[in-house]
Structures are given as structure tokens and as C-alpha cells.
Amino acid sequence: MKNILVIAQNTLKETIRDRILYGIMAFAVVFLMFTVFLGSISLGEDLAVIRNLGLAGIYFFGMVVTIFLGASLMYKEFEKRTLYFILSKPVRHRDVIWGKFLGLVSSVTLTTILMAVVYLAVVAAKGGGVDAVVLEAIALQIAEMGLFVALTIFFSTIAAPLASTLYAILVLYIGHSLSLLTSAVKTKPVIVQKIVLVIYYLFPNLEKFNIRNSVIYGIRIPWPELFLSLAYAIVYIILLLLAATAIFKEREL
């Protein structure tokens, strides 16, 4: 357990000392400011536009940071052979995987909270308040980012950063289209439906984490549903990290 925390802390240091992170964050803040301008040209719909675009922006930049940093996290350790230092010490493979996971989750959570603070400040400046549902949306976004940290760690134990990034984007796309996909094949042949069913169970259903529309209309999400979504993310993360550990153990360094 101690080793997991030591590696997590080092990973957090690694990511928050990465200049690329600040580049992306600067873009995010500029974008959040820009929503004010877009709001002002929308004839009386200021707050709705700011809320809509602001949350989309936090999501977009949050995912960019997550996938970008996650896709190279393990790969760098293999490539640079820094694992030689770690694994020749009394450290287990799973300590490395979980440490990397917790470290990156902490840093993407911090950046998301930072963006959320800027967002709430912009909303407040335009006369809006903080709804509980906004916080729920942010919490679910962090759950989705956690899932993608686990996913990119899993991919980057077997693939190069560019491939991991592409796989992650593919999962992101499919994961948000699952409901659409299943309803679209209702009239198709049984075999096509079966294939889609397999995809449905294999890929994470990411729409569970998207309640940004509810924020616009101020609709609260019931607690059980919220917890179910979080539990879903946690189970998925555990499975991915177990698989990543198993692959990592067998890999020739």
C-alpha cells in the first residue's frame, strides 16, 4: 500500500511538472472566458450558452489531458527503463499500475476542479448560481476520466502512445454511441444485433456519465442513479487494471 502511494505521488509530480499540461489548461481557461463573449451575442440566452459551452469545454479539455497524459504514462517507463529502478526494489507490478493510476487520477481531478472553479466564477459573474447538478456533472466527468486513465494505462502496457491515443478515442466515440447503436439495429438481422450486443457489453457505456443536458435544465439526478454510475466506473476500472497488471507481469523488460 505504501509503495502505491509513493508511486502515485511521483506520478502526480511528473504530470504537474509537465509543461504540456499548462498549455492545455491555458487553452481551457481562455475558452471558458470566451463563452462569455459567445453568451453576449446570443440575445438574452447568456447563462444558458455559458453553462452549455462551459461544461462541454471542461469535458473536452479534461478528456484531452487525460488521454494525452495517460497514453504515454506506462510507455515512458518501459521506453526509458526507469522501471529497472522500481521493479528491482521490493515493489510489485500491481503497485506500479495502481500507483500510476492514482497519481494520474489525482492530477486530472485537480485540473478539472480548477476548470470548474473558473467556470463557476464566470457563471457567478453573469448572475448564475451553483446548482447541485453542476457538481454532480463534474463528479461524473471525473469518474469517466478515471475510467480513461485506467483504459490508457491498459493500452499503454501493450501499445505505443499514438496507438493508445487512437484506441482511447475510438472507445470514447463508441462508448458514447452505444444507446444510439442498439436502437439503430433493432430492425437489422439477428446476427448484426448479436454483434452490437457484444460491443454493448464490451465497451463502457459512457452516456451514463453524461448529465450535461440535465444541468442546462436544472434537473437533479437521483442518488441511486448517481451511485450506480460511479459503481459502474469503479468495476470497469478494477477490471482494466487487473488486466493491465497481468500483461505487465508477463512483459519482457
Binding site: N10, K13, E14, R17, D18, K80, R81, T82, Y84, F85, S88, K89, P90, V91
Partner: peptide
């Protein structure tokens, strides 16, 4: 592994530390 120390060949490091 708690009893040993190991120095790899031509080591790479965490450059940000």
C-alpha cells in the same frame, strides 16, 4: 529484493525530479 541494491547500465531517470 529488499536485501539488494541495483544500478542499471546507462540509466535513464525521471528528468523532472
Amino acid at each position: 529484493r529488499a536485501m539488494i541494491g541495483f544500478m542499471p547500465e546507462a540509466p535513464y531517470f525521471y528528468e523532472y525530479l
